[in-house]
Nucleic acid binder design. Structure first.
Lengths: 339, 339
DNA sequence: GTGTTTAGAACGTGACGACTA
DNA sequence: TTAGTCGTCACGTTCTAAACA
């Protein structure tokens, strides 16, 4: 009755540990939090008792008194696509290393009320900060005139609203992609862009356009997809029914896959007839037919930077609103060729 | 000084609301929890005060007294691949609908200590249950002799350990894929399987093998990949250097992409020379060349079932250890053809 | 004095029994 | 009686100040 009394139901408290170690609960607390002024022998006795009882401090009680939940909220859209999923993964791991747990909320649409309700749920869970991973510019606007009570960090490609922002250099990446096509001698470079509301899409489009303008090349209206391989296919069908471009810079790898499919259907060879560059470098792009020349985004670094931004906000209110953006790297494979 | 005193820093408590509404804090509590025995007029006054003060109940205090954190822990590996990401997404949404927040932990490897440390972090956050999304059978074993103190639900394709299990019928899906090839008249059906430790891989392999045996076809040793398109490509190169099979059932769509790449390199046409079936139906598989015949997994339903299993466990200890498994559907596209 | 330890007071909620009309 | 309220206590921790070697 005394030694077999393992009671996983009724959680053991700091007082149980204290009693077993023969000290006060306060001393146990000092040991738990690695505070000084505890004799080595005492510390050892307490730690022994903790192990013996399988004691786990109550996060709830701790959060109540310290007003710190050790939790960060993440509102993320775009899953289960590779990019957003990778960012969420990296964010989670980085947060964990920093001692924070992540509560994620994945709204089903990007309407204002839906987003707010997602954020409110996180606030109710008393997260210490909220991170917004949402590609559409309207998303940031929805949070613009709303006092959350906690720091807000946005993973976004455009500077909008008041929140701290973290991002990769979509514009620079696009310029690298188009620059590569220009170096190969292409002068007729089309762009299949992502949806109009997407900040990433707009930045990549801007990079494409500026690259053409700087080189004195004519700029035509870009085509618009929705990131899906399906839209890339449909746009390809329509485009190729009219004419065959020299080269195409596609807004992401998924649309590129569909576009390659359309090229194949039309009997056109890549890169002999058309050069194609994608964006993202998803793992599969190496085995598209042909293997895709594309732009690699460092999603892992982005997730880490988002956590860093949160920690900076949590430490002191005044922190840089934006860190230097990484420029994605060009990965040259077999879908582009000298003209 | 009286009406402008918005203080988002020092959170407003239930007592502030009570004072403003002219009632006791206990009445506010009843309103918050939708308990009866509150006069309509009183309820309205309280709700008015709540809105006016932007009051949000402290989850920490609530969790402390009720011993319920309204939080579920999720240990998930396999991200950022499409399948796991989809399951995590669906799980999160279903949990939210049920009133639970999800804290996810994504361990960097599947070693026992790493997994335990991930689960311990969730326990420290006082989650009410833990869900394990891990494809390798060793993962379940790591939790087998460990009393967590909270219910454990595994999303896994094999019945292992004591935990409640939820899954899709990998075996049945594989039989459908192979059955399709058999109906087309193929008798030489190879299998490129996933890694040996993967429960999904083993179940699909078992389905392939049984389908061959039941039809009286010879069974040869399956080839082994690691789910990546790269491994599909390498295995394809090696295989095709030796011989050209009639038909191949590949363990997942990513490996299939690489395998198609190898077939293309070898100058073989699909489906004219070789019929190919994949598994998963990732969104891109519709635009592989050729569009892929594959098996569609309902990850959304799986995520929902996992949440249901958790809720059942939380309600009463005795609940069915396993629900009926859904059999994935065959999606016929252009990579298979009558012999 | 100085390093160690202790007792008591918060933190913000929900459960319970007692009080009121 | 009974529907509607209210006051007190407990939850498990950290913080503060005081007491001890």
């Amino acid at each position: 009755m005394s030694s077999n009394d393992e009671q996983p139901r009724a959680s053991t408290t700091i007082f149980d540990v204290a009693r077993l170690a023969g000290v006060s609960h306060q001393t146990v607390s000092r040991v738990l939090n690695n505070l000084p002024n505890v004799r080595a022998a005492t510390r050892e006795r307490v730690e022994q008792a903790i192990r013996q009882l399988h004691y786990v401090p109550s996060q709830a009680a701790r959060a109540l008194v310290t007003r710190r939940s050790r939790t960060i909220g993440l509102v993320a859209t775009g899953l289960p696509d590779f990019g957003p999923s990778s960012i969420v993964l990296s964010f989670n791991r980085s947060a964990r290393i920093a001692g924070y747990a992540v509560i994620a909320s994945h709204p089903t649409d990007i309407e204002g009320p839906t987003l707010r309700s997602a954020a409110e749920m996180l606030i109710r869970q008393s997260v210490e900060a909220i991170v917004l991973l949402a590609a559409e510019r309207g998303v940031l606007d929805a949070f613009d005139d709303w006092e959350l009570g906690v720091p807000l960090v946005a993973i976004a490609s455009e500077a909008r609203g008041r929140s701290v922002r973290v991002s990769l250099d979509q514009y620079g990446g696009a310029r690298r992609a188009v620059g590569h096509l220009q170096e190969l001698g292409h002068r007729d470079i089309l762009h299949i862009a992502g949806p109009a509301g997407s900040m990433d899409a707009e930045e990549r489009l801007r990079g494409w356009r500026d690259a053409l303008i700087d080189a004195g090349m004519p700029v035509v209206e870009p085509l618009r997809g929705d990131w899906s391989s399906d839209s890339g296919y449909r746009i390809g069908q329509q485009l190729l029914a009219e004419r065959t471009p020299e080269a195409v810079f596609v807004g992401n790898d998924q649309m590129t896959l569909g576009f390659l499919h359309a090229l194949h259907d039309a009997g056109l060879r890549v890169p002999e007839d058309v050069s194609v560059v994608g964006f993202d470098d998803v793992p599969d792009s190496e085995h598209f037919s042909p293997p895709l020349t594309t732009v690699r985004q460092d999603f892992t670094a982005l997730g880490q930077e988002a956590v860093s931004a949160v920690l900076a906000q949590l430490k002191d209110e005044e922190s840089p609103v934006m860190s230097a953006m990484r420029i994605p790297e060009l990965v040259v494979r077999a879908s582009t060729r000298q003209r």
